[in-house]
């Protein structure tokens, strides 16, 4: 399971990096969203998967799942939401001002 999820995360990172390198702002924002998905999965994997019960004390179990990655991911989810929201509004404003969503055009490069 761990290896499979790690490979899935790797694929998502590949997709995210490809999207980040493109010229359209929307694709870049999507890229950053996918990247945070990948990172959440990776964090999850680090604590080991499906080993022990839900980290709620009082559950009848001799072992709990690692709670630390979960806490980290919870923070990360919220932060990545904030980043996405900010980037979206930034893209919206940029489009209002410049009439373009193409980073290359914004820099004044002529099209290839």
């Amino acid at each position: 399971m761990e290896t499979l999820i790690t490979i899935l995360a790797g694929v998502l990172v590949t997709v995210a990096v490809y999207l980040l390198l493109s010229r359209s702002i929307i694709r870049i924002i999507l890229g950053s969203a996918v990247l945070s998905h990948a990172v959440h999965l990776l964090l999850m994997v680090m604590g080991g998967l499906k080993k022990g019960s839900v980290p709620l004390l009082g559950e009848v179990s001799d072992r709990y799942t690692d709670a630390l990655p979960q806490a980290l991911i919870l923070t990360a989810i919220v932060i990545s939401f904030a980043v996405t929201a900010f980037l979206l509004v930034l893209a919206y404003r940029t489009y209002q001002e410049t009439g373009s969503d193409d980073l290359r055009e914004m820099r004044g490069f002529t099209d290839e």
Partner: peptide
């Protein structure tokens, strides 16, 4: 993976994010 808090948060956030995307796309 036995992370109920995360699942809940993720569903809420994902819903809001998608809504936000769609809202912004109206202008983009």
């Amino acid at each position: 993976f036995r992370a109920p808090d995360l699942a809940l948060t993720q569903i809420v956030i994902e819903t809001v994010t998608t809504a936000l995307f769609l809202l912004c796309f109206y202008f983009l």
